[in-house]
Simulated assay, not measured.
Amino acid sequence: MRDKKIKLIYFSTHGSEVKSVNLTWKRILSIMFSSFVVMLLLVGSSIAIFSDAYHNVRIASLSKTNQILNGQLQLLNNKVAEIETQMQAVERSDDAMRIKNGLPRLDEDLRRVGIGGAGEENPELNALPPDLQGQTKLISVAVAELARRLQLHQENIAEVSAKMRDDSVMYKHIPSIRPVLDRDGYVTDKFGLRIDPFIERAKHHNGIDISAEPGTEVYAPAAGRVEKAENIYTPWVGYGKHVIIDHGNGYKTLYGHLSQIRVRTGQQIDRGHVIGLVGETGRATGPHLHYEVSLKGKQLNPERNMLEGQFIN
């Protein structure tokens, strides 16, 4: 078997020359093995070339994606900084609003409660490049801080709104308008020391006198409960027909020398309610309204509790 040979005969189609080659099996196997090795090398080289090309394309794509992500993160970072500036303006407004409504300014430490630290770990961030991980974590912390401060702002709005509602109820019960319209009457005697027209010497006047035509309507300057509606009087003595209203919070008002009373004792009334008509009952020299304001028993100057302008409901 070893001595057997294979004879290959080949000739040219353009000539008559015939050639032959004698090959042993060992030679044939050697040629086949060499061809196989060459083929493997060619295939391996091709795979390596294509693999390198693929990786280069992949790296270029990832690099481009990385650049885009960096750009987007920078835009987000700028937006967070912009929102931070706006949030600071909102917090300044919060402080101003609290001060105007008699509430203490929020402590800066309170605004920072729950802010800081590494925060909750997100395993997905570990797949990002280190620089992107750092930027993403910083933005996450900033967003968490803004969310906390926004929540505090909402709580502050609720607190201030509640205070304003309470104050609105309180203001509703504070005497603050003229009991007689500007067009219907004018102040003839002010609060304080004056010459008493009956005894003709100086005496403290506990209220003001508003001169007006008889029958002019008298309005309640604030909401409250009618403490007294006195129709019985002695001519030329005291306030004559008069009304006392308890507005709560220590405020009381008195309306004297009325010709007619249109409320009753114990009645709840609102600001602007007609409580009676101007007259000259009791100790009076002519038709006018004697008007007093007191706070916890101390007489106040009524003109300091009257808003400018006409009647306000």
Rank of each mutant, 00 (worst) to 15 (best):
I83K: 09
A81N: 13
L138T: 15
L76R: 06
D107N: 09
P104W: 05
M87E: 10
N101K: 02
L125S: 09
R98T: 08
L138W: 00
D107Y: 04
N101I: 01
V143L: 10
R112F: 02
Q86M: 02
Q86R: 13
P123M: 00
L128A: 05
L103G: 01
E84R: 13
E121K: 14
Q86K: 14
V141R: 09
R111K: 09
N126L: 06
R105N: 14
A89R: 10
I139V: 09
L138R: 09
E82M: 03
P129L: 08
V80L: 06
E124V: 00
E155L: 05
I83G: 06
D131A: 11
L146D: 01
E84H: 12
A81F: 07
R98F: 03
G134D: 13
E120W: 01
L103R: 05
K137F: 01
A118T: 14
L146Y: 02
T85I: 07
L146Q: 01
V113W: 11
L150Y: 14
S140C: 11
L128N: 03
N78S: 15
P130V: 00
A118Y: 05
E145P: 07
N77T: 14
G116C: 04
L152F: 06
N122D: 13
L106V: 14
T136Y: 01
S93N: 13
N77S: 15
D95A: 12
G114L: 00
D131T: 15
P129H: 05
D109Q: 12
L150M: 09
A142F: 04
E124W: 00
A147M: 07
I115D: 00
R148P: 02
